[in-house]
Simulated scan of single mutants.
Amino acid sequence: MFQAASTEHLFILDRIKELIKVKGKQAIPGDIEGVLRTHPAVADVAVVGVPDDQAGERAMAFVVSSA
């Protein structure tokens, strides 16, 4: 679920699914977020699954830059 405060801000409140299935394999969004947060240019990140015709689902990251 997400809630838009205005056209410039997006707040992700919760995750609908805890697993993303990519080509039959499981990907955990929280694990992907943890890796992305280690990058010095990343202030915050949220990963969600998006439908994909070939892979079933793909991970999409919404990244907040620290710069």
Rank of each mutant, 00 (worst) to 15 (best):
R37I: 02
I20H: 00
F2Y: 15
I20M: 04
V22F: 03
A41P: 08
D31L: 09
A27D: 04
G34P: 04
P29M: 08
G49R: 03
G34W: 06
E18K: 09
G56H: 05
I20S: 00
F2M: 12
D52H: 05
D14E: 09
R37Q: 07
V47F: 03
A46M: 08
L36I: 12
Q54K: 10
H39F: 13
M1H: 08
D53E: 14
R58S: 12
V47H: 00
V22W: 05
E33D: 03
T38G: 02
G34M: 07
M60V: 10
M1D: 14
L13A: 11
H9L: 11
G49Y: 04
S65T: 06
G34D: 05
F11D: 10
V22R: 01
I16L: 13
V48K: 04
V45W: 03
E33H: 01
T7P: 12
D14T: 08
G56N: 07
L10K: 08
I16Y: 10
I12F: 11
A67T: 13
Q26I: 12
E18G: 08
I12A: 08
G30N: 13
I16Q: 14
K17R: 14
F11G: 11
L19F: 10
K25R: 15
D52E: 06
F2L: 15
P40I: 06
L13D: 11
T7K: 15
Q26A: 15
A27K: 07
D14C: 06
E57Y: 09
E33I: 04
A55R: 02
M60A: 13
A5V: 11
S65Y: 07
I16A: 12
V35D: 10
E33K: 02
E8W: 11
S66G: 13
V64Q: 13
K21P: 01
A46G: 03
H9K: 11
D52R: 00
P51S: 03
I20E: 05
K23P: 07
A46C: 01
R58G: 09
A55P: 04
Q3R: 15
L36D: 07
E57F: 08
R58P: 01
R37A: 07
Q3V: 11
A41G: 05
L19C: 01
K25Q: 06
V50Y: 01
A61D: 12
F62A: 14
R58I: 12
F11M: 14
K25Y: 09
V42W: 01
A4T: 13
E8I: 14
H9R: 13
A43K: 14
A4E: 12
H39P: 06
V64P: 00
F11I: 15
G30K: 13
F62P: 05
A46H: 03
V45F: 05
I20R: 02
D52N: 06
V48P: 02
T38M: 02
V50P: 05
I32Y: 03
A46I: 00
D52Q: 00
R37N: 10
F62E: 03
A61R: 01
V42D: 02
S66Q: 04
V64D: 13
L19G: 06
A61V: 11
V42N: 00
G30P: 07
L36W: 02
K17E: 12
M60K: 14
I32S: 04
V22L: 01
S6V: 08
V48W: 06
V45K: 00
L10D: 03
E8C: 14
A5D: 14
V47S: 04
L19I: 12
R15F: 08
